[in-house]
Write a protein that binds this DNA or RNA. Structure first.
Lengths: 241, 241
DNA sequence: TCAAAAGTGTTCCGAATACACCCATGC
DNA sequence: GCATGGGTGTATTCGGAACACTTTTGA
């Protein structure tokens, strides 16, 4: 982008010269949520570089001056973990003065929900390791990443009660009890099975498949599929858990 | 803040030198909502400086490198409009590449709700004018401020349905119909009077006062006061409009 | 007396809750 | 058979929506 001469503009009452206002660093952090074996997971990297070398951290990096915030989040996620085609969602910006030891770095937080069995992250560039962690059983994290993660979980909880985003955590075909388990893990709340079924089926966004579970030592459950189109055409408030 | 030597850090795979990542501008924008005569208002300034000189805009300015984001929002608001002691709330960050003609400026959006009759804004520094506008009847705005305002209104609507923030728009003493009118203006929705009363009184957060309206040509309404302590001690979901 | 808004009560309906109970499969 | 989870039905409660009605004031 071509810059006009900034000195012709009167941008602030502050006595500092204009150029001093352009010394912020900007980064993005990507909180990737997954669901596996009944627990809510988050994808973390181990830092292979200072500062906080060897600490676990939320995948994130500095934004390139020529890229958009959202594209930057996707790019950074790909570079560090190899994950692609994951739509991310902004949730909060963190800008405490001392949050980064290198300088004044503001970070914009993004989150996403993925089917963890479809995505096989590989650590690259300065990430020395990538791993899924149980959200409720975390190591200590670099920078202010604990605060960031807490805020992300909070946002996710609010979101999932109003919109059918939870399906992104499950395989395309799932049983109703798997769905219920996912919601229970996410919201840390127990639901009544018959009532959960009624509510979710009453929402009319699930398509029953002609398929059942295999190799289970009990009555096999019917498989369902989430129909996004059906949801879009209704647009009611469906998920009031 | 003292900076360590950045060159000792390996912060990004990108080939650009480290210093190139510290050329972002950072600003804050403050969307101040008020309520007056049945309509939802927003406080705008007229720009007395380039770019977008003379355009109406959301009060905002560049962040000083040594200040916190939230403090910056309060400081900027005070400098441009004279308003003080207004707690602001972050809602979204806007960072399109071309959103600012001078360079790459990221802006963090804050909003607040005020009793407009208590606050008398005065334009200062580079704001040549300040004025309340009906949210649904706006002039065209500078930069991407229309987008920012839309997002702020959206956030406010979501918020007001879950938490009793709306009271910040009203005088300390109000009638139930005034309260209802405020919610109706904010949510652009009509409510049934008897049902509204029942719901709001049932929430048990209003204190009836021994006082009634004066000089009205009809039966004077009882005045109420919002009791924050009572709300805090309950912490239920109260406002499901 | 009338207009205008304040304020109350009652009915209806649908959604959420709390259960009790039956069904299919592997071992 | 029996353990295990899958799946259904029902009775009750609660909150919201609709609406008819009475009350109090100023003019």
């Amino acid at each position: 982008m071509e810059k006009k001469n900034p000195d012709t503009y009167f941008l602030s009452e502050n006595n500092l010269p204009f150029e001093d206002f352009f010394h912020f660093g900007l980064s993005v952090d990507c909180i990737i949520f997954g669901y596996h074996q009944g627990s809510l997971r988050v994808l973390l990297i181990q830092r292979g570089a200072e500062p906080f070398k060897d600490s676990w951290a939320i995948p994130g990096d500095l934004v390139n001056p020529s890229e958009d915030l959202t594209s930057s989040a996707s790019r950074v996620l790909k570079q560090l973990t190899g994950l692609t085609d994951i739509p991310v969602q902004q949730f909060h910006t963190f800008g405490s003065i001392d949050r980064h030891p290198v300088g004044r770095v503001i970070t914009v937080g993004y989150y996403a929900l993925v089917r963890s069995e479809n995505h096989h992250p590989i650590a690259s560039t300065w990430a020395s390791n990538v791993k899924w962690f149980d959200v409720y059983d975390l190591p200590s994290l670099a920078f202010d990443h604990e605060e960031i993660l807490t805020k992300a979980v909070e946002t996710l909880r609010t979101k999932v009660r109003k919109e059918p985003v939870g399906f992104d955590l499950l395989p395309p075909k799932f049983t109703l009890l798997e769905l219920q388990g996912m919601y229970e893990a996410l919201l840390r709340e127990r639901f009544d099975k018959p009532n959960f079924r009624k509510k979710i089926l009453g929402a009319d966004v699930l398509v029953p498949l002609d398929e059942v579970q295999k190799n289970v030592s009990h009555r096999p459950a019917k498989l369902f599929h989430f129909d996004k189109n059906r949801y879009e055409s209704q647009k009611k408030q469906l998920f009031n858990f």
